[in-house]
Nucleic acid binder design. Structure first.
Lengths: 143, 143
DNA sequence: GATAAAATAGATGTCAAGGTCTTTTTATCT
DNA sequence: AGATAAAAAGACCTTGACATCTATTTTATC
C-alpha cells in the first residue's frame, strides 16, 4: 500500500514539523522516528532534492521543513521518495487497446486516483492538528 | 499499490467471468490474460483455496468462478492472494502507544480502509457491465 | 584551522515477491 | 485397466526493495 520508504519519509517529515524552528541532524531524526540511520540519510537526500526539506550543512546544520506543514500535502512527501504510479496504458500491451484502459484497469486506476487525491488534500498540518489521537511518533498518548 | 499478483488474480477472475459456463485450464487463462503460466497456476491455487474459483481436476477439468460476478467483490480476489494489511498497532513499537495509532498512522490507515471499502463495493460484475470502456482484456475496443 | 554536519559514492548483504520447472495426484475417457 | 489431461505440490532461481557500512568530499560555523 504505502512503501516502507514512504513511511520513513513521512515519519521524518512529521518529526521535523513538530519543531520547525531548529534544524535536526540525521542522527536525531533517526532516533526519534526509529528509522535506520544510514537508510534515513538516503531518504532525506531525496526529500531535499525534491525540496520537501531544506538541508543546511556544517556545524549546527541539519534538516528543516521547506514548507509550512499546512502547505505540505502528504502526496509531495510520498512522490519525492516513491512516486504513485498511474496505469497509463494497457498492462497486457494489447495493441488495440493502446492507451485506452479496459474496464478492469480503468477501475484500478480510478482507485489510484482516489488515493492520490486523498494524499493531496491531506497535509502534514492536518495530521499535526488532528485532536482525536495521540501526538505523532511520541511516547505519550497526547490525550 | 496493487501487487502484481493481485493484478494477475483479477485478470484471471475477469477472464473466467466472461464465460462462466465452461471450465478453463490454466494454460488457456494464461494465454488470454498474458500471465506467466506457471506462476498463474499458483495464483489460481490460492484463489481456489479461498473459494473464489472452483477447480475441477482431470480431463475436461479446469477452473470456473465459484460465485456470480455480481456477488464477487474485487476485494475477495485481492484478499485471497495478497491481503490488504491494516495498520493495527504502532509501527514504531512505542510501548505507550500499543494499539493506539498516532495521527500519522491513523491517517494512513484511514486511506487503507477507504481503498478496502472501494474494492468491497466494486464487484467483478460491475466491471463487466461498465459500458464506458472496452471489454476487459480483449483485443477489441468494444465500443 | 578545527570541527560538525550534509553530500556523494559505492560495496555489500538480506529478504520477499515474482517467476520457472519438475513431479505427484486425481478425474475422465476409451 | 490403462492412457491421458488436468490440477496440486514443491523445489529452485532471479530480481529489486530495503538496509548496512565505509570512506571521501564539501560546506558552514566556531
Amino acid at each position: 500500500m504505502i512503501s516502507q520508504t514512504s513511511e520513513y519519509a513521512l515519519r521524518a517529515v512529521v518529526c521535523l514539523a513538530q519543531s520547525p524552528d531548529k534544524p535536526h541532524t540525521t542522527a536525531e531524526i533517526a532516533k526519534l522516528t526509529k528509522v535506520p540511520e544510514h537508510y534515513l540519510s538516503k531518504v532525506l537526500l531525496m526529500l531535499a532534492k525534491h525540496e520537501v526539506v531544506y538541508s543546511k550543512k556544517g556545524l549546527h546544520g541539519g534538516y528543516i521543513l521547506a514548507h509550512l506543514p499546512e502547505n505540505l500535502p502528504l502526496l509531495n512527501v510520498i512522490n519525492a521518495v516513491d512516486p504513485i504510479k498511474h496505469i497509463k496504458s494497457c498492462p497486457l500491451k494489447l495493441k488495440t487497446h493502446g492507451t485506452n484502459l479496459c474496464r478492469l484497469h480503468k477501475r484500478l486506476n480510478d482507485s489510484i486516483d482516489l488515493i492520490e487525491e486523498l494524499f493531496q488534500t491531506s497535509t502534514v498540518g492536518t495530521i499535526l492538528s488532528d485532536p482525536t489521537t495521540s501526538i505523532p511518533l511520541c511516547e505519550s498518548t497526547g490525550k
